[in-house]
Write a protein that binds this DNA or RNA. Structure first.
Lengths: 354, 354
DNA sequence: TTGTATGCGTTATCAT
DNA sequence: ATGATAACGCATACAA
């Protein structure tokens, strides 16, 4: 039953067609130096015999494997799905195979990627998300082109060591918080980057601090909420829920929340409702990402929208120009937009809070 | 720059170590017939030289590729993510590589799968979701074990042609609709399986009809809503929203909705709110799947919960017992449970609707 | 315990 | 235009 032994090889086809293997190879790969008549004959025969090329054999010889590894960490965030989808389409369109490797959020994504890429002799890699705690050295091991998607600056690593396509997380976060400040809020909490995350989470928090600082609002670290439970994905509705639950208990003076991800915001919204507060009248909240579900919760989520299609397209552009043309590393920033939903409102100046 | 030419092979290691290639091969694969001292020496050397086995070479020889293809159609449904995640973990734990192939919902998933599996000489395949319009014949082409996950009965195909792990979609749908009937509803609409879908969608609609029939409620096909726009994924919030929007305009007599997927239900909830109706007082709605976000919308979604972990585990069980022990095909049904949220309520007997 | 020779399916080189 | 042969990296049967 465990067939596959029955699969015809070019040798079999050659035998049946009464030609040499190399002729078959040429016919199947649209190479020159072969008469149209024999080509057609062979192609038809191969099709009829149910021939499939053996990638292992082919790429053992060619040592060029048209495959891209897509390393994705923290898949739970639906936003990644929204960029993964077009990414996959584009890669396939270029006749490359995309191998998606999900790594648990506590694992070392670069380590995993190196292994896969090396063993499979892949042509390149894309890191979607991820929290890079790495030193520059780990990227040295990487001997194929790679791009960081939705991740921009890496604090410990020199720009020249990698490429990236992302929104300016810090800048956009500042704008988001500025939006809350413009509405009159001054006691603004932030949810929640775990310590040690050296990536988008940290940058968005930096943006938060920046906005407060710009506005002359004193920083209060107690308002920056996160949790560091091991083996727990920080980008989940649950996490946002728990963070907000505690926040509301401990800090009834808060009137607005900046969540570094929509999933956290949506989880927080439930906690806010459970606390008997109304959104946005008693509590404003703004998210980050622009995931689809944000438009279907009540009220519709106000958030910083990252353009998934554009990110996907640019990621592929940068990657393939490195693969095909040996182009140098590049850092692309794409603009985000604030989508005004119904979760933010001007601060009501009165003492009736709580 | 495009290195990978620099990767050491066992030949290089053998040269440096002053031994034969076969000794290296044995050392690296923990084979017997090799002294511990040389093994350790070689392993250390390989590590130091940054050796990585070349899968192409290895599996060209072995013609057994420890890789599983995961074909997933209609990825937009978040429920698939919830089973994909543990699935991936289990497969990796068994030291198999999982290649996820997403196919657009209008493509032929079996065709795609056959190609990949053949070319990569994969050991097996898992179909996650999908709408199988196929005749039995297409499965004959498949010469490796495969399992349909979250899909049970295929109308046109004999049971002996495939394995499956899923809830009993028809039965559970009947229970869901029965739940609405028990609350006193009689004018119950259903959202939305496109015509031609021969899979879970159709079965859940069949379950809906069954429930009405059991209760002696006359069937009204106008209450079964779906759309057949080409190239449009039916399992989205948007789709549910549009279906409900029209339904509410055309049929103000409806008091309850059965959605064949949670995404549709959640999309519909927005349409219901926009129509000025309250959930569940003016309109009850029940979903199917048990996606996480259902617990974070307001009110919390009442739904039929499929157990993703159990489905993932059983899918792997069935697949690997076929791969390793040549076990026969098997059909596993897992029980679902109705999660009582806040979107269903007893019918209020009065004329104030609308 | 270790090494030599062979072949997996394919493509490139060099012939004819 | 076509074919014989070598080579890709690895693992196995067999010999030493």
């Amino acid at each position: 039953m465990r067939a596959s032994n029955s699969r015809p090889t070019i040798k079999d086809i050659a035998k049946v067609a009464g030609v040499g293997v190399v002729t078959v190879s040429r016919a199947l790969n649209n190479k020159p130096d072969i008469s149209d008549s024999t080509r057609e004959r062979i192609v038809a025969l191969a099709d009829q015999m149910g021939y499939r090329p053996n990638r292992h054999a082919r790429f053992l010889k060619l040592s060029h494997n048209p495959a891209i590894a897509l390393i994705i960490k923290g898949i739970d965030n639906p936003f990644f799905q929204q960029v993964l989808d077009p990414l996959e389409a584009i890669v396939r369109e270029k006749n490359y195979l995309l191998t998606v490797v999900k790594v648990p959020h506590w694992a070392d994504e670069v380590e995993e990627a190196t292994k896969i890429v090396d063993e499979e002799l892949m042509a390149g890699a894309i890191f979607l998300g991820g929290s890079f705690r790495h030193e520059a050295s780990v990227f040295k091991k990487f001997n194929v082109p790679f791009v960081l998607s939705t991740v921009s600056r890496l604090p410990k690593v020199d720009d020249s060591a990698y490429s990236s396509v992302a929104v300016d997380d810090q800048e956009e976060a500042t704008r988001a918080v500025q939006h809350l400040i413009d509405l009159g809020h001054t006691t603004i909490a932030a949810l929640g980057v775990p310590e040690g995350d050296a990536s988008v989470g940290a940058q968005r928090i930096t943006g938060y601090r920046q906005a407060l600082s710009n506005a002359g609002i004193p920083l209060d670290d107690d308002l920056i909420r996160f949790e560091t439970r091991e083996q727990m994905n920080p980008y989940t509705y649950e996490h946002g829920y728990h963070l907000a639950k505690r926040l509301l208990q401990e800090r009834p003076d808060v009137t607005a929340i900046f969540a570094i991800a929509d999933v956290l915001a949506i989880g927080a919204m439930r906690a806010i409702r459970e606390a008997g507060l109304s959104i946005p009248d008693d509590m404003s909240i703004i998210g980050f990402d622009g995931i689809t579900i944000g438009q279907f919760v009540e009220p519709e989520l106000t958030t910083v929208v990252q353009p998934p299609l554009e990110i996907a397209r640019l990621t592929c552009d940068v990657l393939f120009e490195q693969i095909n043309d040996s182009a140098p590393v590049r850092h692309v920033f794409v603009p985000a937009t604030i989508h005004a939903g119904g979760t933010t409102a001007p601060l009501v100046q009165s003492g009736e809070a709580k």
